[in-house]
Amino acid sequence: MRPTLWLKNDDGDIWNLRPRQLMTEEYSSFFATLDGTGFETKLKVARVKNDFVITEETPQQITITGTMYFRSPVNMQRFGEFVGDYTKTVRLFYDPSGKIDPRSQLDSPWYKHVRVTKLSSGEQDLKTGFWICKMVFTPLSAMWRRDTTVASSTTVAESDAHTYPFVYPYFYQNDKRLYLNILNTGERIGCKVSITNGSGYAIDQIEWTATSDNVRQYAKWLAAVGLPSGRTLVVDSNPATQKSVVQYGNDSDDVSDYQEANPQYINFVELYPGNNLIMFNLETIEGVTIEVSYTEEVRVL
């Protein structure tokens, strides 16, 4: 099976780079001679007698290159509109197995954020009739990423302990506390925790811990946040999107001043490699929905 490739822009539009039937879709083209989907690291070493000891390992920014075949200049023009101006970043999805359909809502494909940094505008090839252009994607991350979101569903009385099937990630509840188990098969990563209060009254106690092996991370938001019913506390520990806000409608308030000051509380918990158990300790779990999303990372697919 041939690997599949497609782009997705901020609006959620998809541009299929490897259509199954050549050029049957308006918003597609064929991207051939793909190169640069692997990785490269640069090592700094110190020589100790006859051994080289690694002192620094730096992932390199490897450009993804290839050749685009457009059916017509209109097709090429639409691609320009899809990518947008030079400040726009798009996501390049890659499935080496070629099994995932770009429009699938069920699969969780791997991607890199990329900028289109070169699209040479060529002439029509007289033999094939295609417009052939060299193209370069410059990735903004060294790793391939995959998003996962898991949401709690507390539909039973909080006095009744219940669990969900033990397929990672899964929630379970006990003694007015919600637990979430996540198996992180990649590197240490950030995560986004969203707590939506639908209990009918404000929640003053907002705490959680994340435990992995011998490490325990604590998070606590002060009562001054006073998460009213109908509002959502969002705490994101990813480097590029880090924030702590309370959302209501289309507005949000920054609540980073209301985090626990104690240096023992990291407040923005991260997921360590391996199993991570997050325990949410709120006043109630009835009517409260917790959503945790995170992005797994791998070097090569």
Binding site: T211, N214, V215, R216, Y218, A261, N262, P263, Q264
Partner: peptide, 19 residues
């Protein structure tokens, strides 16, 4: 208020409110 450094916590460490 500036918190210059975080304390890494293990399973055995307890929260100390005097900081």
């Amino acid at each position: 208020t500036i918190v210059p450094e975080l304390q890494e916590m293990g399973l055995e460490d307890e929260i100390n409110d005097e900081y």
